[in-house]
Simulated scan of single mutants.
Amino acid sequence: MPSQPITVGASATHRATSPIAARALWPDLARGATVLLVVAMHLMYLQLVPLLHGTAATVWHKPIVDWTTPLRMPLFFVVSGYLSARMLQRSWRAGISGRIAPRAYLYVVWLAITAATLWGFAAWDGEDYDAWGYFVSELWQPTGVLWYIWALAAFFLVAKATQRLPDWLVVGAAALAAISVELVDVGSWKSIVAGFLPFVVGVRAPQAIRALTERTDWRHGLALLALAVALVAIRRELPLPAISHLVMSAVCVAAVLMLLPRIAHWRALRPIRRVGRNTLVIFALHPLLIIAANRFLRDTPHVLETIAASPWLAFLLPIVELLLIVVLSIGLERALRRIGLRHVFEMPRFRSQRRRVRDRLAGRQSERTNASSISS
Rank of each mutant, 00 (worst) to 15 (best):
Q47Y: 03
P198G: 05
A362N: 14
A308E: 02
T213N: 02
P198D: 03
F77W: 03
T69V: 15
P27A: 03
R349I: 10
A85W: 01
T34S: 01
P70F: 01
W132D: 05
P301H: 05
R358N: 08
L238W: 01
D128S: 15
T279V: 09
T17C: 09
E346M: 09
L257N: 03
V275Q: 01
V247Y: 01
L118T: 08
D299T: 14
L157F: 12
G9N: 11
S366A: 14
T143S: 13
D28S: 11
Q353D: 10
W140E: 01
A174M: 08
I263P: 06
M41N: 10
Q89L: 14
V253I: 08
L328P: 00
V200A: 05
R103F: 08
L259A: 06
A123T: 12
A211V: 04
S249H: 06
A16D: 05
Q4M: 13
E138L: 04
Y45E: 09
G81M: 08
P5C: 11
R103E: 11
W140V: 13
L106P: 04
L25D: 02
A250K: 06
I272F: 04
L238I: 06
L169Y: 07
L111H: 06
V186K: 03
L176W: 11
T143Y: 00
R334D: 03
I234G: 02
E127W: 07
P70R: 01
A161E: 11
I100W: 05
A335F: 11
P5Q: 10
R72N: 05
F76P: 05
I100R: 01
R99D: 01
L322D: 03
S376T: 11
H286T: 03
I234C: 11
R368C: 14
D299M: 12
S352Y: 00
G32F: 00
L341H: 07
A94V: 14
A268I: 15
G331T: 05
H53Q: 15
A254Y: 00
F135E: 00
L51E: 15
L238Q: 03
A153K: 00
A308S: 13
R215G: 12
E127I: 13
S310W: 10
I282C: 03
F121G: 10
S91Q: 10
L285Q: 06
V108K: 02
A230V: 14
R204A: 04
S84G: 07
F315A: 11
L225K: 02
P142A: 12
L332V: 09
C252H: 05
L176F: 11
P50E: 10
V281S: 09
V326C: 03
A115Q: 05
H265G: 15
T162M: 15
L183T: 13
M44I: 07
L316G: 00
E182W: 09
V8R: 11
W60I: 14
A112C: 07
R364K: 13
T369S: 15
L240F: 08
S191H: 07
A309D: 05
F350C: 07
A362D: 09
P74Q: 10
W119S: 13
T69M: 14
R354V: 07
F196A: 00
